[in-house]
């Protein structure tokens, strides 16, 4: 099926006209956030759609618009077509339904989504930190994230010897013996 047909069929199933775009393998369709799970089900089970493979599930932070765009890249081994399913969430309180019941692969992607973007996942069976420590502050992949200087008393940055100015004129000391090695 070509992307336009897929987009049309999804629109029919959801009974709404959807915002579509992209071409070829990068075709996408934007659904309202509250119909996210419904749209995913339709794509998974719909006649002739059969999207059985969730490639990736991720988000893009757009602070200028006050939105977080969530994108799920789908593919069908059976029909050999691809589609990107997208939705736009309110950046202040992003919430989305879990797709784990449709594609089990979504569980881990959603854990990452939750910790990296602060998107709350509804009905996730096991929402724990995936990559970061449990007490890590903030959501690193948001655009306004500032890395803490210290984590549990440990500095998060390496010393930057280059930041010091050159030692004036004359020979500069380098090498393992000068300055003397710490014991």
């Amino acid at each position: 099926m070509n992307p336009t047909e897929i987009q049309e069929r999804l629109g029919q199933r959801l009974g709404a006209s959807l915002e579509c775009g992209g071409a070829g393998a990068d075709a996408f369709v934007i659904v309202p956030a509250e119909r996210w799970l419904e749209a995913a089900r339709a794509l998974r089970e719909g006649e002739g759609l059969d999207f059985d493979y969730l490639r990736s599930l991720t988000a893009v932070d757009r602070p200028a618009e006050g939105k977080i765009d969530v994108a799920a890249h789908l593919f069908s081994y059976k029909r050999r077509h691809a589609l990107t399913l997208k939705t736009r969430l309110d950046r202040a309180a992003p919430r989305i339904a879990s797709l784990g019941a449709v594609w089990p692969a979504a569980h881990w992607h959603e854990r990452e989504l939750w910790e990296m973007f602060g998107v709350a996942i509804e009905n996730h069976p096991d929402l724990r930190h995936l990559l970061l420590p449990e007490d890590w502050p903030g959501h690193p992949l948001r655009k306004d994230y500032a890395m803490p200087e210290r984590y549990q008393g440990i500095p998060t940055r390496r010393p930057a010897p280059l930041a010091e100015p050159a030692a004036g004129t004359g020979p500069t000391n380098t090498g393992p013996k000068n300055p003397p090695e710490a014991p």
Partner: peptide, 16 residues
């Protein structure tokens, strides 16, 4: 190989 990583900062210019 160096015992201290700072010592891998190499200044190639001795004088301006």
């Amino acid at each position: 190989g160096m015992a201290r990583v700072e010592n891998l900062l190499v200044r190639f210019l001795d004088a301006p």
